[in-house]
Simulated scan of single mutants.
Amino acid sequence: MMTTSLYSSFFNIDMHSGVDRKSGKKGTRTFTNVGFHFLQNKRRRAVQPKGALQVTASSAKKILVMGGTRFIGVFLSRLLVKDGHQVTLFTRGKAPITTQLPGESDQEYSEFSSKVLHLKGDRKDFDFVKTSLSAEGFDVVYDINGREAVEVEPILDALPKLEQYIYCSSAGVYLKTDFPPHFETDAVDPKSRHKGKLETESLLASRGVNYTSIRPVYIYGPLNYNPVEEWFFHRLKAGRPIPVPNSGIQITQLGHVKDLAKAFVKVLGNPKASKQVYNISGSKYVTFDGLAKACAKAGGFPEPEIVHYNPEEFDFGKKKAFPFRDQHFFASIEKATRELDWKPEFDLVSGLTDSYELDFGRGTYRKEPDFTTDDMILDKSESPVISTFSVSV
């Protein structure tokens, strides 16, 4: 990922550090990329481009983003700052608080980074979370990286007057069904690997918090740290066949990160979103084979050779041979489009093109390719291996 030389010219100002009375642990509230005038006037209006909608001071919110330096929060925080909100990112400070995005001008990046504050700490240090958040006070919390309900309780305790808690959940909480797509009212699976997110939603509801929960399906786009489109791009660039489990007609769904970020903004202060859950993803579904072809089209590669295989005939150990769950998995976004004045701007090919041109196509990616499982499959590909597969989701 690209960082800019502008970052080295920024400075950190340690506003206050505290020692927890019980644990003796120290925590530092560090405000990053700001001038002294900004520290003295946190709720000033943002500079708007000519002709843009002006945001009044009364509509500006003091917003805490839990996370915000990896993927979703990178795009969300830019939208919030552009709308005139005061944005503080809560992170451990192990990664740069802001980085210049591919395609982002120096001026755009400078304006954004000069307005972002940073609260340095570990969200699992519950005592520090309580003391630091209660001292600062926030109107709204965007929780992008919360995984367990226990991580959310101290935030709620620290902010009893919180106006809204906006949570990034997952469509993975749904119970498998023979009647897709998933709707927000569908049964959930308390044993899913996302049960922590499900328990967090229950906590928010039980505490009477004005919350909104967003359930994305598969997310893709520039800076994606999950091997979704990158997995296909690596194989396409290497001119290798694409191994796809079973028949390849399994149906799934992807949503672009920029569309997701806009949905997060649409629920802010929206009375229709109060104590509601929304599925957010792309408007169309796609088969595994179709996704391989869409990635090829987005990157300007020839249509790929697709090799189908039966996963039960292989022992891949701990390695993951394919980046998607081998089943139908998709959700309806009808409720969000109806209630939030939101709809995806990217179709799948244009979204994958955006991802490729701003990330992989520039030579940046999160992981080096590993074709170990591919070679196991291809070595056996001379034998027919197609089998029937479950259509549950």
Rank of each mutant, 00 (worst) to 15 (best):
F329V: 04
G299P: 01
A331C: 13
K319A: 15
R325A: 08
I306H: 00
P304N: 13
K320Q: 15
T337C: 14
I333C: 07
D326V: 15
F329I: 05
K297R: 15
E339D: 15
K335D: 03
A336E: 13
K318L: 12
W342F: 03
A298D: 03
A292R: 06
F329L: 11
N310Y: 05
I333N: 10
L291E: 01
K318I: 08
A298C: 08
E305L: 11
D341Y: 07
I333G: 01
T337P: 00
F330E: 00
H328W: 13
A331Q: 08
N310I: 07
K293S: 10
F330L: 04
E312H: 09
A294Y: 02
E313Y: 01
P311N: 09
N310A: 06
C295I: 04
D326L: 14
G299L: 08
Q327G: 01
D289I: 02
D326T: 14
A294C: 09
F322M: 06
A331Y: 06
A296L: 10
P302C: 04
A298Q: 02
A331V: 08
P323H: 03
A296G: 09
V307K: 09
L340N: 04
A321H: 14
K293T: 12
F301V: 08
W342L: 03
K343W: 05
A336F: 13
F301M: 11
V307W: 00
D289E: 09
I306Q: 02
E312K: 13
K320L: 12
K335A: 08
Y309E: 10
K343Q: 12
D315A: 10
S332M: 11
K297A: 15
N310S: 09
P304Y: 14
F329K: 07
W342Y: 03
K335C: 04
P304G: 12
H328P: 02
L291N: 02
F324H: 06
E334R: 15
S332V: 14
E312P: 00
E312R: 11
D315M: 05
K293M: 08
Q327V: 10
A298G: 04
F322C: 06
E305I: 10
V307N: 00
R325S: 01
P311L: 11
A292E: 02
K318E: 15
H308N: 10
A292V: 02
Y309C: 10
K318M: 11
K297N: 10
S332K: 14
F301D: 07
H328K: 13
F324K: 08
G290Q: 06
K293N: 09
A336V: 14
D289L: 05
A321Q: 15
A292I: 05
A294W: 04
A321F: 11
P311G: 09
